[in-house]
Design a binder for these strands. Structure first.
Lengths: 355, 355
DNA sequence: TATTAACACTATAACGTTTTCGTGGATAAA
DNA sequence: TTTATCCACGAAAACGTTATAGTGTTAATA
């Protein structure tokens, strides 16, 4: 055998093995698949060779032939974001276990990037999508790229940011219940003037958590007061806008000294509120109790540590991957579709302790 | 035309267009590529049809034909980790701009997962790797999977966790300098007993940052004292081990009341140290000044906010992607290899303020 | 001895592209 | 009229697989 064989081989293929061993490509393929059509001798010879030179079938060729890629496309609005990374790690875990690969696309909260990213992946690169729609998409309420994908026979599992008019599998957090539990907790701790820091209305999860806040108040016989609800503008989330967010929150706290509880729809709002309140001399949790949403490191390391509604992102991701893979393996892309609701859990820390 | 055409088409291909328009596949392909071989009439007809039914070439088929996938494989030790996500977002940005897709593999700090992930992707799915080796890989010092990949003609760009014996492009943070600057800062603020919280020795970045710590002390004429260096065990980073980490740090602080400055090689150690110190009644920054490494949200939102050595993960990712894509487009997989060093920047916050 | 069956392989088509090389017919030049 | 030149298109190969359908040789059966 050519001594330079190893060097010359950029990538070993069936054809090269066949040429080297002086048999046909079919024989090589069948040998490696342990087909009964091939004699033991030949099989062993081929397999030894393949093993020696570390043959691995070309994934692309297989994808083309089988018309499936064993790859999941995941589109998320942001990756530098604790919640989404936990979801991705859940997806990746299940995907890997079942022999799937994960491709990640970032929309960066942009409608256009979401669309182009999907189009790029939809052309044969992946078998199905797991995605959370971007903020802009929710704002525009334009979901044609999603419906078209589904119509073309590619399954989608939506997560977290629900879009009720879309017919597909979904796995969502029980935002309403999570928020309700949080606010109920505040009430049970004696809070009577509970402020809500939430997003603009078009953000679905913000809306749902607001609804939960309201439910809890209703149940407790506390009247809902518009002026205790602060809708923070989207742009405050942008890089470098921390000060404006802080100013807005501080202004509110200054104007509402009677507030004794805060429920915020995310960690950032909650922590900013805590910092602003502390700067104003309010003691947490004695004067003011705070609960946030999304359980990340930020909450754990805050001073005082922040009680939060944990969303179980990993579980969410695992569920999403399972649902998608199930459809793919069963080759069932038709209704009925399923919506899995992942329960939240209130993690109590110092910001709501009673001492 | 068959009215059910749209429905029947799972995915539009050249062949289907050809059949429908009663021309050859070649003609369709050439028309879409605006070849001069084809008449205007035919071109227009084909293009109108393709546009109407939203034809997009099958990526997999193109990959097979061109023997390149326009996809980058990114292997990171962890995804629920601020630094790595910033790197990924930098990679993704550049990749997207240049028409590349990104596949993510997680090693979860495991050697075996790193190897299998790479093997899976190396078989045609991607054109090159960007990766940061897992902790276990560093521990074992087994890099055969990397050298083999390189030998097979697939370029690798290593980032952050450098492996000096590997011959490939690299983009690393200047850990030594970052650490030195941080410690110099502490010295300039009057600290004389500066503790170091670092990792076990086999973690490269820990070692480098430790070296920087030492350099700064040497320069400042402060003697290096072994007993001020705390090597925290890897396992303390695992989920649920926060208390043990905290206990270890607290013990040290209790035994070393004279410590007036802390440099920690990551955010977690720094924040845990701050919390422990505060619990022991030390005031930060007046009694004790603290600087961490890696600039994440944790540092910004801590109380007091934490000064850190910012690693510019995004830039790091951008550089890595640029280097890899350059090699791919130039088809140049040979030495010389480049090592880009991304400078760090000391971000000063409350934990080192002077008032 | 002629037929059949078993064996151990090879050839071929297909997946969806792109590209090189033909090719038939029309037109222009000789 | 014959020959050369275009024009507009089609055929075929290739990328690396797998699966189906041959095929030639030997051995068993009638």
């Amino acid at each position: 055998m050519n001594p330079d064989f190893r060097r010359s081989m950029q990538k070993l293929t069936l054809k090269k093995i066949a040429r080297e061993l002086d048999v046909s490509i079919s024989t090589v393929s069948k040998s490696l698949k342990d087909s009964p059509e091939i004699s033991q001798d030949t099989k062993e010879k081929v397999r030894a060779f393949a093993k020696l030179y570390n043959y691995r079938p070309n994934t692309i060729a297989l994808s083309l032939k089988n018309r499936k890629t064993k790859t999941l496309g995941v589109i998320i609005p942001e990756i530098v974001h604790h919640f989404f990374t936990t979801v991705v790690s859940g997806i990746e875990k299940v995907a890997n276990e079942k022999g799937y690969t994960v491709i990640i696309g970032l929309s960066n909260e942009s409608f256009e990037k979401e669309v182009t990213n999907m189009q790029k992946l939809a052309n044969g690169s992946i078998d199905g999508f797991i995605l959370s729609v971007s903020r802009e998409t929710q704002l525009k309420e334009d979901y044609h790229h999603l419906t078209e994908t589904i119509d073309h026979g590619m399954p989608i599992v939506l997560f977290d940011r629900n879009v009720s008019q879309l017919e597909c599998d979904k796995v969502v957090v029980d935002d309403v219940e999570g928020a309700r539990n949080a606010v109920e907790k505040l009430v049970s701790l004696g809070c009577e003037h509970i402020a809500l820091f939430t997003t603009e209305d078009h953000v679905n999860v913000g809306k749902l958590r607001t609804a939960g806040y309201r439910e809890a108040l209703d149940e407790s016989g506390i009247s809902y007061r518009e002026n205790l609800v602060v809708k923070l503008r989207d742009e405050f989330n942008d890089e470098g806008q921390e000060e404006r967010l802080r100013a807005e929150i501080e202004l509110f706290l200054r104007n509402n000294p009677g507030v004794d509880g805060i429920f915020a729809v995310n960690e950032k709002y909650a922590l900013t509120a805590m910092k602003a309140a502390q700067a104003l001399g309010r003691k947490i949790p004695s004067d003011l109790k705070v609960i946030g949403f999304t359980d990340g490191d930020l909450s754990k390391f805050a001073s005082p540590s922040l009680s939060t509604v944990s969303q179980h992102g990993i579980q969410l991701g695992e569920n999403a991957a399972q649902m998608l893979i199930k459809r793919l393996e069963e080759n069932n892309f038709d209704p009925p579709f399923q919506t899995v609701v992942v329960a939240t859990r209130l993690v109590e820390r110092e910001s709501t302790s009673i001492n």
